[in-house]
Every structure is written in structure tokens, then in C-alpha cells.
Simulated assay, not measured.
Amino acid sequence: MKIARRTANKVPEVTVYFWIIKVLATTVGETAADLLNMNLGLGLTWTTIVMAVLTAAAVTLQFRAERYVPWRYWLVVILVSVVGTLITDNLVDNFGVPLEVTTAVFAVALAATFILWYRGERTLSIHTIVTTKREWYYWAAILFTFALGTAAGDLLAERVSLGYLASAGVFAAAIALIGLGYRLRLLGAVLAFWAAYVLTRPLGASVGDWLSQPRDNGGLGLGTVGPSAVFLVASVALVAYLTRSRADATREPAAAAARAFR
């Protein structure tokens, strides 16, 4: 039987930097998808094709790494964020699938990914992404969280007519409750992490739409260029800092690898 290749854990420690960059990346995913699709005139189909190719190349680089490398990891997150947005937009705009259906479908897909992951590996911890198989599960889950978050955010803001800013407030409050539940030990670390991870996607998307959408649609009318550039530059600056400081590197990769197979 072939033994899966083992590496050091290839996912960063969950620090305040992790959550800041995650929200920045999700906001970039929302505004950049609109920028490429509408402002540059590529259209949904060509935008999706181009971004899928770039994402595949970035994922290949990430899989070839033997340890966590900040720029490789976060490049994939940003690109997957854009692709997740485009998948939902394609289903809704090109194929006429209602947001209620896309939200339900991606929720089921994410749940199925977690079930298969846990059945095969007996853990969903991000501190044990030390084999290629686990890495596939991890990135599949990330993709579905982005697609689900886009659909859920648009559903609440547009279909339910709550508005972008109010929707962002709802998701922020939900994340705060998850954090409180974790602090009070009402939620386990793994459940709290993934619940918060899912919700940061619609939070970032709602903020992005609020900044970029016209005032008539409930936004600030800043367009997609400015917000995309600001959030992307902020993301790059933080990733550069983490590359230099190693502040979010896994502290004991060998120990984590050993625990992963217990």
C-alpha cells in the first residue's frame, strides 16, 4: 500500500493576522470578480476560465511546497475567493439558479466534504494538514465556503432586502457569538473555527458590495477598482510581514505531524 507523502503542516497558525487577511481576501474576491467581469468587460465565462487557470497554477505551487509558505498559501486563498464568487455568479446570472438553491447546494456540498474528510481522516483540524489527501480535503472545503458565503451573503442582502451594511453587521455579530461560545467552552476549537471561517466570507462580500455598489443599490458607489486595490495592497503588506517575521508559522511541525496520525 502506498503511504501518503507527509510534510510539515501547510496551514498557518490561527492568529489575528489570519482573520484579518481572510476578511481582506474575501473582500478582494467579491470586488475583483466584479472588476474583471464588468469593468474590464471579460464577461462571466471568460473571467471564470482565466481565474480557474490561475487558481490551478497557484494550487499546484501550494501542493509542491513542503511546509507553510505565506505567499503561496494566501495567493491560493485570494484566487479561490474570486473563483468561489464566480461559481455562484455563473449559476445565478448565467443559468438562473435562485440564490436559495445555490445556498442550499453549497451548504450540502460543504457538509459532504466535511463528512468524507472526517470519515477518512478522523479529524477536521487545520493543524494536521500534513498529507496530500488532507490538503485536497482542506482546499475543497475552502472553495465551498467561499461559494456558500457568496450565495448566503447575496441572499440576505439582496433577496431578503436587508442591505449590504446591515448584512455585514449580522454576519459580524454571528462571528462574535461564535467567538464568545469558544471562549466559554461551549464550542470546540474545530467547530468554532470552521463556523467562523464560513461566516467571514459573506462578511467580506457584504463589505465589498457595500463599498463598490452604486448608491441606488445601497452601496457607497466607490466602484470596484479602488476597494480592490486597497484591500489587495493591505493583504500583500501583511503577507510580506508574515513572510519576514514567521509570526504565523506552525510552532512545532514535527509534533503536529506526529499527532496527525494518532
Rank of each mutant, 00 (worst) to 15 (best):
A109W: 14
A104C: 12
L91S: 06
N94I: 05
M51W: 03
V76M: 08
A107Q: 12
P70I: 04
F106Y: 11
A52S: 15
W46L: 15
V53D: 05
G96S: 04
T60E: 13
V77E: 05
V80L: 13
N90H: 07
D89F: 03
G43H: 10
N94V: 08
L75T: 15
A58T: 07
L44G: 07
E100I: 06
V76S: 12
L61I: 05
R67A: 07
G96Q: 02
W74V: 05
L110A: 15
T55S: 01
I87D: 01
F63Y: 10
G96L: 03
T102H: 10
T102M: 05
V108D: 02
I78D: 11
T85G: 07
V83M: 08
R64K: 05
L86D: 10
V105P: 09
W71A: 02
L110R: 09
T103G: 08
N90Q: 09
Q62R: 14
T55C: 03
V105L: 11
V83W: 05
W71H: 06
L110M: 15
I78W: 09
R72D: 02
V82P: 03
V76E: 09
D89L: 06
P70Y: 03
F95S: 02
I87H: 05
V59Q: 01
P98Q: 02
V76F: 07
V50W: 10
E66V: 11
A104K: 11
V53N: 03
V53Y: 01
V77T: 06
V69F: 00
T45E: 13
T85L: 06
V69G: 05
R72T: 05
V97M: 00
L91C: 04
S81M: 02
Y73A: 00
F106Q: 10
L54T: 02
I87T: 09
A112P: 11
T103I: 05
Y73M: 00
V80N: 07
P98E: 03
A56V: 00
T102F: 07
A104Q: 11
I87W: 02
I49C: 10
T45Y: 13
N94K: 13
V76Y: 06
E66I: 12
W46Y: 15
L99R: 09
T47A: 09
L91F: 04
Y73H: 01
I78R: 09
T102E: 07
V92H: 14
T88N: 06
V76L: 14
I49H: 09
G84W: 11
A56P: 00
N90P: 04
G96N: 04
V101H: 02
V76G: 12
L79C: 08
N94A: 14
R64S: 00
L79A: 07
F106S: 11
P98V: 01
T113R: 04
T48V: 03
A111M: 14
R64L: 01
L61K: 09
A104R: 13
A57S: 11
F114I: 08
A56T: 01
G84H: 14
V92D: 14
R67M: 05
G96P: 08
A109L: 15
V50D: 08
